[in-house]
Amino acid sequence: MRVVNIILGLTLILFGGFYSYLTLHLPDRNLPNTLGSAFMPWVLVTCLYILSALLLLQTIYRGSAESCDYVISKKEGSSILFLVVLVIVYIKAMAYFGFLLVTPIFLIILMLSIGARKWKEVLLTSTLVTFGIYLFFQKVFQIILPAGKFF
């Protein structure tokens, strides 16, 4: 975990460098006699440099007293990827096919992947939940959910 902390510290410093570069190129538009839009970013990035340096120093000289499982396992990695892809596909598909058609499929895939096996339960939940959310958001709260491009 020492190695992880050192990598983290270096990553943060790299990020700080990127942020400083962006801050340097901020457009200058300001009222007289006052701080500009770059002031706060400079303060923050300085804090970030100091803290990252402290993290590095602490890890190198004192080791770290924390006990964390620092590894993201393969299983977790694949479920993170699965979640991200699923949500993105869900959102994109909703724009084309509409909330009412896509949501049951989204729910079914999710339920099956979490371990639901009874098809009655899966079908019933997915349709009722879709319809319930639709009624609650669109009919009661007048939030227009995507209807899809083909309709």
């Binding site: 949500v87 869900y90 909330f99 989204f106 729910l107 639901a116 939940v129 959310i133 939030i143 227009i144």
Partner: peptide, 22 residues
Amino acid sequence: PQRILLPIILTLCVVGTFALRN
């Protein structure tokens, strides 16, 4: 059961965040 609750929560999160500012 969690196999039902978690999918509902995720759907609500997606729809809820959409609903805030459309």
